[in-house]
Design a binder for these strands. Structure first.
Lengths: 229, 229
DNA sequence: TCAAAAGTGTTAGTAATACACCCATGC
DNA sequence: GCATGGGTGTATTACTAACACTTTTGA
């Protein structure tokens, strides 16, 4: 006979999604114009409320899908934000999630339809509630993860140049890296396939394209390999 | 005019506290016999429900105080656990917090009164709900933090021997460390004060006692120092 | 006198950093 | 022919890891 917790306070539990993308220049974050009160019309992370039948991961994916049409991506829980007055309308606790996606792979039309927009992390607009704080924390976590595992390949097209990869790392870490050291380290990891093909857009000489070797990477992870950039 | 989110589901939000302690031998976790249904009488983390007027940090401290008499310690948020059926009585999301405390500094009588008990992390009893999973995650986080910052001093008495400190690190990391390398590294950090005094309990020869130099440490942190064991 | 834990340095290997010039091409 | 970005290797330094014997003293 299971007894219930009848005297306890219940609260609204929100989920906010921090979606990172990369456009071969800058690290970007996807924001949306909020279409309900309070703060209607202001920029915001993709957010919504947890429903009774969902866990938080599922809610995060549903909310992202409803607001942007983006489906089935891996999101990771960041932190629960719980200041009593963080939402002026009503007491709400928000669990922030973040994810990395490839901007080009996700249908621009769909995102436009939903009035979502990419902003460079260095030029974010004013955001509602504590969403800036969430983003600050997400960037910190992203930097940490980047220094442990070679993530970031999600953010690039299937074929990419060393220079694009380097720029991606630079924009995540917020600092310039040495070209030769970077290439040496990435090559030492031995998880890229160098293609015959060259990308001729970026320079007259052209630069070789690479692919991420997911199989080799998986194998190395199983052998317990760890990464340090 | 602030509008409310009237159609959204509300849920119970619980907080569970993972309290780490060290008794100069083993890394331990504080557990309590649950005195209400469901699962009454089984071992559990210290848990309770968030109240309307509290944020999660404050709730975590209140719950810990009510169940163990331990006050005013620094707790860090770990993760929100949200499986739909994690609590059979009613839909409950739980945010886990963890902390490090010095077992001896916290009044044993008080803890006994509340029927809390310390268990070695290597010999945990069966726990309710998803509490084992919470502990696994907390240990992982603790190991990570230990490898970045010289934490763990919270777990030792004010004066301690190098060997005690080494045992603490070994029990957090779950592996043996080399005595000389350990001492060399700790000394290189230059955040301990070597005392004249010796501890005569552990051996015939006696071993020198050390103190953590909080001031020096603070200064180094400000200079941007980072730690790698 | 011996058992039990404390204390003490060096070396070899590995990883991280700093650094500068030539190449290929389109204009 | 020159401007642009691409590509390449080495030397130095700092860190990490492995390793064994002597000291002290209470029983």
């Amino acid at each position: 006979m299971v007894q219930k917790y009848q005297l306890e306070d219940k609260v609204l539990l929100a989920v906010d999604c921090i979606i990172f993308g990369f456009d071969e220049e800058d690290l970007k974050i996807l924001l949306i114009k909020r279409n309900f009160e309070p703060e209607k019309g202001k920029w915001s992370l993709m957010g919504g409320f947890l429903k009774r039948h969902e866990n938080l991961n599922i809610a995060a994916n549903r909310i992202l899908y409803q607001l942007t049409g983006i489906e089935q991506i891996y999101m990771e829980q960041l932190y629960a934000f719980s200041e009593v007055d963080r939402d002026p309308a009503e007491r709400t606790i928000s669990v922030a999630y973040f994810a990395l996606i490839n901007i080009k792979e996700h249908d621009k039309a769909l995102i436009d339809k939903y009035s979502a927009k990419w902003f460079s992390v260095t030029e974010l607009p004013e955001l509602i509630f504590d969403h800036s704080e969430m983003i600050t924390k997400a960037i910190k976590r992203l930097r940490y993860k980047t220094s442990k595992k070679p993530i970031g390949f999600e953010l690039l097209p299937e074929k990419f140049t060393m220079r694009q990869l380097q720029k991606l790392y630079e924009s995540i870490l917020g600092e310039k890296l040495d070209k030769r050291n970077f290439i040496n380290k990435i090559n030492a990891l031995d998880i890229l396939i160098k293609l015959e093909e060259k990308d001729m857009n970026s320079s007259r000489k052209g630069s070789f394209l690479y692919q991420f070797d997911a199989e080799k990477y998986q194998q190395k992870v199983e052998e317990g390999f760890s990464f340090k950039l």
